[in-house]
Design a protein around this nucleic acid. Structure first.
Lengths: 184, 184
DNA sequence: ACCTGAACACCGTTCAAGT
DNA sequence: ACCTGAACACCGTTCAAGT
């Protein structure tokens, strides 16, 4: 690997990338992850080919958007792993991920699809889920044999419900599942 | 309303309608409710305009497909309303609806959208859900204040999970929520 | 190295003409 | 009364030409 292949990106390319991410975030919040990419490019002031140059697929764009937000989320998860109340930590984690996954309409489906571009995020999430459920189980706060995979399913389903129902209804779904999961 | 406006449909029109429904069912089972309508028409041996003549929107086609299946489902619900074990009846109903709503990929989203074409079905479902939860509550088999609307949210979310996860994972989600709903 | 935007491809929907 | 299918519209994606 010669030095030249590792050159820093051109300044205009970096700036275009940033503007594309900022506009994609705004557009996806308004219209969901299925929004027109042509519109994103136009709002960012670049041609559609530039968007494809930076992000070859829609999912790649979504993955790039999630990266910054994910870091924050995972840090929160790591902090929760040291929480003195494992049951509360688990519930807290679930609610945090659901809010996270309901940022854009369609994001829950994107996550549930487990595409290559997003599988790092998915693994990270189930990993933290496994850790938190293990701790809760060890503390006798869990009934049943809930795993990180169960959490992942629940969180995606609740995020999807949040997109299609009212947030209040989605919260009731979460409360129901939590009541079934956590020992009284 | 003169007699002529109530004439029975032409025989070929009726036959085309039946063929379109049969092929749409097959195609939606294979490819989901988002499948190409052009393909449905081609498989039914009619032009695309004929499909639109019978079913002006995709949702209208889905609604027509559901009609026959719904009748069966609602009869099951009515029978369950007389079940001696209200908790078991409730769990039975939920599982039946989820299987029903996971017939085609995308059907859960279609139901959750509560379009005009499908709102009769949705009302009927929440109605039966209200009845079954009321009976379970009266029998002391329920904890919390679960309603038919909660059931509707849960059933759609579980059906959606069934589309994106394995059926086994979706069942675990259902079990979790049921455990939270039904008094031990 | 990156950007542009015309060109291509695909599919949903309509509607004038036909039977 | 119903069917046909060409025509239109829309949008995602690619790539040759330009800087």
């Amino acid at each position: 690997m010669t030095e030249s292949t590792r050159r820093r990106p051109r300044a205009d390319a970096l700036r275009n990338r940033e503007r594309l991410l900022a506009e994609a975030d705004a557009v996806f919040r308004e219209q969901g992850t299925g929004a027109s990419l042509e519109g994103v490019a136009r709002r960012a002031g670049v041609a559609i080919g530039t968007l494809y140059g930076h992000f070859p697929t829609r999912t790649a764009l979504v993955a790039a958007l999630l990266e910054a937000r994910n870091r924050e989320l995972f840090e929160h998860g790591d902090r929760l792993a040291a929480d003195p109340d494992p049951a509360r930590a688990l519930a807290d984690w679930i609610r945090a991920v659901v809010r996270h996954a309901a940022a854009y309409q369609g994001l829950a489906a994107e996550l549930a699809a487990r595409s290559d571009e997003l599988q790092d995020s998915c693994h990270r999430m189930t990993g933290i889920g496994d850790l938190l459920t293990d701790r809760a189980r060890a503390a006798g706060a869990l009934r049943g044999d809930t795993t990180g995979a169960d959490l992942f399913t629940l969180m995606n389903a609740a995020a999807w419900a949040r997109e299609h129902d009212t947030p209040a209804q989605a919260d009731r779904l979460l409360d129901l599942a939590l009541a079934g999961m956590i020992a009284r």
